[in-house]
Structure formats: structure tokens, C-alpha cells
Amino acid sequence: MTASEKTALIVIDVQYGIDEAGHWGGNRNNPSAEDNIARLLKHCRALNLPIVIIQHDSVDPSSPFRPGQKGNQLKDFVTVLPGEKSIHKSTANAFIRTDLENFLRAHNISKVIITGFVTNNSVEATARMAGELGFRTTVVSDATASFDKIGVDGATYSSTLIHQVSLSNLKDEYASIATTAEVIASLTPTSKPLIA
């Protein structure tokens, strides 16, 4: 990869509060999301790719992500290592009131791989903005997850449906959608990156 083709891995809101499923709507899909995020982190770290760890500091007093609570803490496997970028946010979109865009541009990063929680919330909001800002964006379908959602009609929509609809909202217009295995295969030193 040339400097103009640098790719960064962005990990969003992988905090202990995500385990409080009832707060988010219950019935989380994709229980393997953390394992896949860990695989991507290991692979990207081995390739010395830029890593950005996003942590949500909620201003909602009922949120498991509010500062000072166990739920605000990053899960152990995403602890920020020396040389990695740590960003704290208070909105769904990781570009709002943070230096994420400046960091990416200062490091000549043109492509981003987005993982984390929740697909239809912070992941989708951040991926939409990344696409709008001109970053070539990939959302990793099996390294993200959603929860059940109650619709405006009062019906409960399953986490799997919410996840798929959110990814479909992003597909082609704002981001490419790929699996962990596809992203890892694309990021070997000798292969052409998959990131669209």
C-alpha cells in the first residue's frame, strides 16, 4: 500500500456496557462479533496499520456507557496500545466533536474499516459520515451487531433484521460490506486491498 492508500481500522464502542442487552433492546445478534473484532485487531496490528479505538462517554444518566460506570470501560481485548489513537465521543457519530477526521487526514488515511457496536446506531452513523467525507469505507458485517428494536408501529423487529437493514442502508452508497475473513484476506502484504 502506498501512503495515499493507507487503511485504518476503527473499533467503535466495544465497552462492557454493551453486555447490558436489556438496555439496548435485547436479543443481540452475532454473538461472535467480539471474536471477529479481536481477529481484525490482531491482524491489523501485525501489519502495523493505524488503529483507532472509539469509546462512548454517554451524557444519558441511564446509559451503561456513562463515565464512572463499569459499562463505560473498554473490553480488555481492545485496550489501546502505544501508538494507537484513542477517541472519546458523546454522540453516535464518531466524527462529531472529535478529532477523528483530522487524525485520518493528517496520517494520509483514505480507507477505513469499521467494526463495533451498535450496527444501526454508532456504526451506521460513523460509516455514513466517513463515506460522505470521501473515505473509502468498509463495514465488517460479522464484527458488528444489533439488538431488537420496537418500531413506530409498536411491533418488535428482530436484531437480525435490524442488522441486515442497517448494512443494506450503507451498502454501495456509503460503504462496502465485507466479512472478517474477506477483510483479513484483502489486507495481506502481497494482495490488493478489498476496501472499495
Rank of each mutant, 00 (worst) to 15 (best):
M1K: 12
S4C: 00
K6G: 08
L9T: 00
D13I: 06
V14I: 13
D19I: 09
E20W: 03
E20S: 08
E20R: 11
A21W: 12
G22T: 02
H23S: 03
N27E: 08
N29K: 10
E34W: 06
I37C: 10
I37E: 09
I37A: 11
R39F: 10
K42P: 06
C44A: 14
L47C: 12
L49I: 00
I53T: 15
Q55M: 05
Q55T: 13
H56I: 04
S62L: 15
R66P: 06
R66T: 15
P67F: 04
G68S: 05
G71V: 07
L74Y: 01
L74H: 00
K75F: 00
F77R: 09
T79W: 03
S86T: 10
N93F: 03
R97G: 00
D99V: 02
E101L: 04
N102T: 12
F103Q: 05
R105I: 10
S110A: 13
S110C: 05
K111H: 15
V112F: 00
I113N: 04
I113L: 12
I114W: 07
T115Q: 10
N121H: 12
S122H: 09
T126F: 05
R128T: 06
R128V: 00
E132L: 14
F135L: 04
T138N: 07
V139D: 03
T144S: 15
T144W: 06
D148N: 11
K149D: 12
G151W: 08
V152C: 06
G154A: 08
T156N: 15
Y157L: 12
S159F: 03
L161K: 12
V165M: 14
V165D: 13
L170K: 06
A175H: 02
S176R: 13
S176M: 15
I177G: 02
T179Q: 10
T180R: 00
L194F: 03
L194P: 03
I195T: 07
